[in-house]
Design a protein around this nucleic acid. Structure first.
Lengths: 126, 126
DNA sequence: GGTATCGCTTTCCTGAAAGATACCGGTATA
DNA sequence: TATACCGGTATCTTTCAGGAAAGCGATACC
């Protein structure tokens, strides 16, 4: 039987497959930083000001200290949040978004914009 | 010992905690659609034109038919991709990004932009 | 003395996602 | 006849993110 015409388009001709993958990497980096069950909530919580460990935990129901600790470390490693230890006793520890962390804002806004449209669309469809 | 001054900022005063969570939902929706090991690559592959099942699979090393099948279904459910079956034998099936699917573009670009900066920063730091 | 708070860490465990592998009917190709 | 392609599905196993619970040193409160 007659086959359908297929062109072999893969990547645009000026890009090799390898280059396509390379273009993908930064997108994955960004995605990694925001995905996961708690990251967004924690970032959001910190956008409203400095917070202490327990304070964040109390704000986010279900968040265990283990997870919070881990996520905060990730944020620190990526220089999105900073940790300040004060020599009180027992120690006081505060976390805060770095200026760099705040550069996530437009990205989150874009996600919010698209997500909102999508949500409406999916609900409208029923 | 003297405690440090803490304000109790949580959410901006005009937003309840519930409303904060609500603002989060659409962001998560968007994130869900893009995160995962294969979704981005599949979407990217489809931005370069209609593709057949095996064609996509060949383009993305390591992608099993089971995963591809599942991801394509997800894309269909979200109306981001469409499936066309042609009555040849054996059947020919083509997948393509819908116009709606193409609206993801600015979002992916934004992720790419931030991700690129972040990648540079992390590499520069060593 | 007993209990509570702070800021975690450690250990153990589970459910869900992802991977490996095999298979299916139908067709074309050698 | 046998082998390969197509578009998947079915089944089994592995991996791994994340949860539950306990503990820790230091302090403060009743």
């Amino acid at each position: 039987m007659e086959a359908i015409e297929h062109d072999k388009r893969k990547c645009p001709s000026h890009l090799s497959t390898g280059e396509c993958v390379k273009r993908l990497l930064p997108v994955k980096d960004a995605l990694d930083i925001l995905s996961g069950k708690w990251k967004l909530q924690i970032i959001l919580s910190l956008t409203f000001g400095k917070k202490r460990f327990k304070q964040i935990q109390r704000e986010i129901p279900g968040l265990t200290p283990k997870m919070l600790s881990k996520e905060l470390k990730d944020l620190e490693i990526n220089e999105l949040a900073s940790r300040h230890v004060y020599d009180t006793s027992p120690v006081t520890v505060e976390y805060e978004l770095t200026p760099y962390g705040k550069t996530l804002r437009p990205l989150i806004d874009e996600l919010h914009k698209w997500g909102t449209k999508h949500r409406k669309r999916m609900i409208a469809r029923e």
